[in-house]
Design a protein around this nucleic acid. Sequence first.
DNA 1: TGCTAATTGTGAAGCATTTCACATGAGTAT
DNA 2: ATACTCATGTGAAATGCTTCACAATTAGCA
Lengths: 224, 224
Amino acid sequence: MDIPSGDTARKRISESTIHRLSRYFRTLSLLEKENFETVSSKELAKREKLTPAQVRKDLSFFGSFGTRGLGYPVAELKAKVSRILGIDRIWRVALVGVGNIGSAMVSYKEFIKQGFHIVKLFDNDQRKIGSNHKGIIVSDIKNLRTELQDDRIEMVIVAVPATVAQYIVDDIVKAEVKAILNFAPINLKVPSGVHVRNENMVMELEYLSFAMVNHHSPKGGGKA
Amino acid sequence: MDIPSGDTARKRISESTIHRLSRYFRTLSLLEKENFETVSSKELAKREKLTPAQVRKDLSFFGSFGTRGLGYPVAELKAKVSRILGIDRIWRVALVGVGNIGSAMVSYKEFIKQGFHIVKLFDNDQRKIGSNHKGIIVSDIKNLRTELQDDRIEMVIVAVPATVAQYIVDDIVKAEVKAILNFAPINLKVPSGVHVRNENMVMELEYLSFAMVNHHSPKGGGKA
DNA sequence: TGCTAATTGTGAAGCATTTCACATGAGTAT
DNA sequence: ATACTCATGTGAAATGCTTCACAATTAGCA
Ligand SMILES: NC(=O)c1ccc[n+]([C@@H]2O[C@H](COP(=O)([O-])OP(=O)(O)OC[C@H]3O[C@@H](n4cnc5c(N)ncnc54)[C@H](O)[C@@H]3O)[C@@H](O)[C@H]2O)c1
Ligand SMILES: NC(=O)c1ccc[n+]([C@@H]2O[C@H](COP(=O)([O-])OP(=O)(O)OC[C@H]3O[C@@H](n4cnc5c(N)ncnc54)[C@H](O)[C@@H]3O)[C@@H](O)[C@H]2O)c1
């Protein structure tokens, strides 16, 4: 779904296109640092190992940002893409489960850079509650729902054991949060309208395992 | 690519199919614990939010494992799927970069459970080299290439800063390792025959951001 | 001011993946 | 035995995604 320049006639945008937009954004940031004024679909494609047609088609879903004969203005396109992705703003993010992976995320600088600000932490471990992680005091999980609402949290990262993840998520949903990034290796149930993305490292290792055993190179050369 | 029962006539298997196999494997493990003897494509589909036809088609690429009228034998199918994925064995894995995310991975129990054994750690920080993490002594990055080879490492997890990731990967490639799980947010260059999977959490948050801004529900309901 | 070279934007073609629909086979009960 | 039910396995249809190919447009230059 999106707006091809005006405001009506939304198209359905594929998951792959959205992921490629993220990649374009990252590459455009680099190009900007390298002082490129413009970039062609050919150059962008080369850097991302895609076809120029793919790049142009992806962008064309959202409008026409280029100049024929010249290419795309780097800074401007970057701004447009960030607008499309919704990262031309700050997102207030909470994290539940300040364990191994949770602590790593709190220290992750790329999040802040891209406007994802982790502003609340939750845990149920008495030793962790009240402690300070990167300037944030860990809250008691008991207050999850009310604090998510009071602090107008828009996204939650779930990094608790799989056994409790669904309960936590039920509470997150009650707090009217509509976006969840989940690290627990389970299929979460959420009502429609709530977006869930799963980060599953075991699945990626299994993919590598399959590829090795089968001498496999899938179309597109795999996830980039 | 794979063997549909016999040995010749390999088909090209899509990335999505492989990922779904991982999910079937996880669900079959649960079904086994719940003492199911058999499972239908319908039940499997329900648990994974897929269509029964999708489940049957995925499995049919590799052979016919079910019984008409009955369904699939859980334990047997699980064994078959683990065979297909190549996880009916131990994989020797090394990890480079024992920092925030690297340390988290070393403690991650699911890896061992699925046969991915992290047996070597590397870093360039003098304070970390020689220290003990979960029973593994951190090696000096200087010895990366030789130690990877001497220890017959088959997969490497890369968890170093993006600025040095490519150099590290060049060395990993020289050590003839053919599978890399990369956490650095860059496009790694590797020769063909070397498999790379990227784990990029920022991209997943960006996807959520897009979904929120666009009130988006893509086909399939997103990544499960 | 018109010509050339470059590169976009986009229908249409070409592939790939998913879903449909049904013949087929296996178990069960009478 | 026979009939009945259930659920697989699979061609074929439908849908979705990527690539092609070219008209349209712009910058640069003579
Ligand atoms: N460690 C990894 O590298 C890794 C990688 C991928 C996925 N994961 C997944 O991430 C999740 C966390 O893994 P981890 O290794 O960080 O585990 P962990 O045990 O180190 O951390 C879990 C944290 O959650 C807290 N917790 C437990 N129950 C809670 C509850 N009811 N409410 C609030 N907090 C609660 C614990 O106190 C702990 O701080 C697991 O689901 C795991 O499968 C971990
Ligand atoms: N922290 C996160 O949650 C997170 C999430 C996703 C991706 N990442 C990515 O993972 C990578 C590591 O992130 P981090 O947060 O763990 O950083 P970190 O600084 O905590 O860890 C990096 C580790 O790599 C080591 N290192 C640096 N240069 C090295 C070299 N040349 N050879 C060997 N080791 C070297 C450092 O000593 C350190 O131990 C980064 O690329 C980051 O973008 C991090």
